[in-house]
């Protein structure tokens, strides 16, 4: 059986909020290492991969592999019933029909309990090879969100070009064009504001801004975001979560003219 207790419901609420625009139904794969999720959007352009390691929970118990097929709209409805600071416990039997969510207030004696009916989801699973990326950019997640939002006002697509000069986000639209260039930067007062660029070879790729803007819904989960790029492979956008957990988005590039 599964029993996983999160100190703050907020973490799961934010993760689910970040992916509901991309994915409707998905399996939460539970085993002794934690709770994982991999799902593609309907058009198979973007992929979400989440890992909440067992260390992120206290306690965490899962004796065998359990797949919880959950409709994310249903999960969102139930998670709205939890206060952000509530303690959240997920429970399921070994061959479950439902997943049980318990919300406890640390300050009062309130205890809320909900069951969500599970679904059989036959999900296509993709193998993601370990990739040595040509360029990795770590930057404030709010900055990436702002650039994406600003350029989306002008265009559907963004070109991300990484050279030793820095990283340039640029777009061309009906009303004109725009670009934002970032260089490696160390902020002495606040390292959250640092921009670091690791480059082994120059990269230039084009992506859909609509998808990037969806990924940026995860900005509340982490002050930092890491973009990893190589020519002609999907972009990896990664938000680090507590206890070495992560929320990753992959986005297939636009190709050719």
């Amino acid at each position: 059986m599964l029993e996983a207790r999160l100190e703050q419901a907020n973490l799961l609420k934010k993760v689910v909020d970040s992916i509901t625009n991309l994915v409707q139904d998905c399996n939460f794969d539970c085993n002794d290492s934690g709770i994982a999720l991999q799902a593609m959007d309907n058009s198979h352009v973007a992929l979400v991969a989440m890992m909440l390691r067992s260390d992120a929970f206290s306690p965490f118990r899962c004796d065998r592999n359990i797949a919880l097929g959950i409709n994310l709209t249903s999960l969102t409805k139930v998670l709205r019933c939890a206060q952000n600071e509530d303690i959240l416990t997920l429970k399921a039997e070994d061959a479950p029909d439902v997943v049980n969510l318990v919300f406890e207030s640390a300050e009062s004696d309130r205890l809320s309990e909900y069951d969500i009916k599970l679904m059989d989801i036959d999900q296509e699973h993709l193998g993601i090879p370990d990739t040595e990326y040509a360029a990795s950019i770590t930057m404030p997640s709010a900055e990436f969100q702002r650039i994406t939002r600003d350029l989306l006002a002008l265009s559907e697509s963004v070109s991300i070009e990484c050279t030793k000069e820095g990283v340039k986000f640029s777009c061309q639209g009906d009303i004109g064009s725009g670009s934002v260039t970032l260089r490696s930067h160390t902020n002495v007062d606040n390292e959250d504001r640092n921009v670091s660029i690791d480059l082994s070879e120059p990269v230039s790729l084009m992506f859909s801004l609509k998808y990037l803007s969806n990924f940026c819904k995860a900005s509340g989960l982490s002050s930092r975001v890491k973009l990893s790029l190589s020519n002609e492979v999907p972009l990896l956008v990664e938000y680090a979560l507590p206890s070495n957990s992560f929320l990753r988005f992959y986005l297939a590039p636009k190709i050719g003219d």
């Binding site: 198979h44 352009v45 993601i128 859909s208 190709i255 003219d257």
Partner: peptide
């Protein structure tokens, strides 16, 4: 305009 590629072209189904 650039053509949107899909993930299957890059990642293998397992």
């Amino acid at each position: 305009t650039a053509q949107q590629s899909r993930l299957e072209g890059f990642f293998k189904a397992v």
